[in-house]
Simulated assay, not measured.
Amino acid sequence: MKEGNALWTKEFIILAMSNFMLFVAFQMLIPTLPVFITDKGGDQLAVALVVSLFTVSALLVRPFTGKALDSMGRRPVLLSGLAIFLFSVFGYYWMASVALVLALRFVHGIGWGIVTTTYGTIVSDIIPAERRGEGMGYFGMFTNLAMAVGPLIGLSVSQSFGYGWLFGISGGLTGVAMILTRMVEIKAPIGMTQPFAAAGGGLFEKKALFPALLALLTGVMYGGVVSFITLFGQEVGIENVGLYFLFNAISLMLVRPLAGKLFDKKGPFWVLMPGGVLTGIAVVVLSYSTTELGLIAAAILFGIGAGSVQPSLQAWTIQRVDPSRRGAATGTFFSAFDLGIGGGAMILGAIAKQTGFAMMYRYSLFAMILYLIIYLFYVVRQSKKASTPKAVSS
């Protein structure tokens, strides 16, 4: 599949492009589905359910996806997830009521949970071990590019041509992603031919739990930022909140490959600690921002911090587990991150009702402080273990 430590192989490039197409298809619907719901007569609760139902179903399916990846193989799981995703996107247009749209949204989340877990697992198989941080960084860069252009394309298409074209183009991009995956030679690690029920290991991978915990804490902060940034802008009088997403996406794309290389050369500490500190500073800066300049500064800092931490945690997760358990490890990681985003949005939303959004962001800093304390404690403990001389058996 790859020769030596080459990163930019045919498989890596095609897989990155396939993932990019899928994420554009997904991001096209982020700003447009809420409007689609309201046009069908949905209220604010229905709009909230568009997000929560999708997140819940993706969260529920990820552990089973990881188990299936390690027992049934990568390709059949990926194609089944893409098929569910494609069916859901095309199906939205034909749903006659808000209730049916929400039901399909739950199914859509199942497809999303399957494909994102599978892409993360397959790319970890393809990337050379000694360049895993760098490879994850570049792979994530394509995702960030999709996050930058997808919403703009979705809004433009829906406003200019209507929802039929919106769902048609989104489904078409998903179809292109499926075609591209057929061009990739997918080889999974040995030991994955057993039936699902007979395969070794559980739904969650124990060795992935610690980085998954850190991912959960970063997800809490991330969920607060992305869920309430527009309302925060209204609260403090910043009109063009879209600048946050633009500069955040740019800084994410620029920092991911650099952070990945640092991870490969120096190890996780030199990325996870400074990245966590920068993420915390970014939220504080955001909470005090009352101008577009402050918003941009917070976006850049958050992009650098989160762009360093998230792919490094994912690469570290893969490093810690046996190759035959990469699927379960990836499922564990993304489940924790999803739980952090969903739980963080709920908890911080409740806090915001009492304190306002600016103070809510300051409270969210505690999640990152806890992240830094837990990780620093882990590093110190591992250092003491390494320095303790082992007893020599006679």
Results as ranks from 00 to 15, higher is better:
residue 4 G to R: 12
residue 5 N to E: 15
residue 9 T to L: 03
residue 23 F to T: 06
residue 26 F to D: 14
residue 33 L to D: 07
residue 44 Q to Y: 08
residue 51 V to K: 01
residue 61 V to M: 14
residue 79 L to E: 06
residue 84 I to H: 05
residue 86 L to Q: 01
residue 95 M to K: 14
residue 104 L to C: 12
residue 106 F to Y: 12
residue 118 T to M: 09
residue 127 I to A: 12
residue 128 P to C: 08
residue 133 G to F: 02
residue 143 T to N: 08
residue 146 A to F: 14
residue 149 V to W: 15
residue 159 Q to I: 01
residue 160 S to T: 15
residue 162 G to K: 04
residue 162 G to L: 11
residue 173 L to P: 02
residue 175 G to D: 01
residue 187 K to V: 08
residue 189 P to W: 04
residue 193 T to Q: 05
residue 200 G to F: 00
residue 216 L to A: 05
residue 223 G to H: 10
residue 226 V to R: 07
residue 229 I to K: 08
residue 230 T to E: 07
residue 232 F to E: 06
residue 236 V to E: 02
residue 237 G to P: 09
residue 238 I to S: 13
residue 255 V to A: 01
residue 265 K to R: 13
residue 286 L to G: 00
residue 286 L to Q: 02
residue 289 S to Y: 09
residue 290 T to W: 07
residue 291 T to S: 13
residue 298 A to M: 02
residue 301 L to C: 10
residue 306 A to W: 07
residue 306 A to Y: 15
residue 309 V to A: 09
residue 324 S to H: 05
residue 325 R to Q: 08
residue 334 F to T: 06
residue 336 A to W: 01
residue 340 G to T: 11
residue 342 G to Y: 10
residue 349 G to T: 01
residue 349 G to E: 02
residue 353 K to Q: 11
residue 370 L to A: 04
residue 372 L to M: 04
residue 380 V to D: 10
residue 386 A to W: 09
